[in-house]
Amino acid sequence: MTWRQPRADRDSAEWWAAVARHELLLQRCDDCAGLRWPPRAMCAGCGGFDWTWRPSAGRGTVASWIRSHRAFAPDLPLPHVTVLVRLADQPDLLLPGGWSGTGDPPVGRAVRLCFADIEPGLSLLSWEAAP
Rank of each mutant, 00 (worst) to 15 (best):
R28E: 06
R70Q: 13
D104R: 09
V62R: 02
L78K: 07
F72G: 12
D89E: 15
S100C: 06
R54G: 02
D30Q: 15
L78D: 05
A63G: 08
C29L: 09
T82M: 11
C46Y: 00
Q90M: 08
D75F: 00
L76I: 11
C43K: 04
T102K: 06
T52R: 15
R67E: 14
R40C: 08
G97T: 07
R54I: 02
S64G: 11
P106Y: 03
A20I: 02
D89S: 09
R70A: 07
G58C: 06
G58A: 06
R59G: 09
A88H: 07
C32P: 01
A73I: 00
D50Y: 14
G60H: 04
R54A: 15
L87D: 05
D89R: 07
H22T: 13
P79R: 05
S100W: 01
S68E: 06
D92C: 01
D92I: 03
E23T: 02
W65K: 07
W37N: 02
V62D: 04
A41Q: 14
R67K: 08
L25T: 06
P79M: 05
A33S: 11
V19K: 03
G60L: 04
G101V: 13
G58P: 10
M42T: 08
A63Q: 11
R54W: 14
V19L: 11
W53V: 12
L25Q: 07
H22R: 14
R54N: 05
P106S: 04
P79D: 03
A73L: 08
G101E: 01
P105N: 02
A73T: 00
C43F: 05
W53N: 12
T52H: 12
L93W: 10
L24Y: 03
W99S: 10
W51H: 14
L76E: 08
T52A: 15
D31R: 15
E23D: 10
G103I: 04
S100I: 00
S64Q: 12
A44E: 12
G101W: 03
R36S: 10
A20W: 00
A88D: 15
R86E: 15
A71E: 03
A20E: 13
I66Q: 11
C32A: 04
R86A: 14
P91I: 05
A57H: 12
D30E: 14
R40A: 12
L76R: 06
F49Q: 06
A71Q: 12
R28F: 12
A88T: 14
D31G: 04
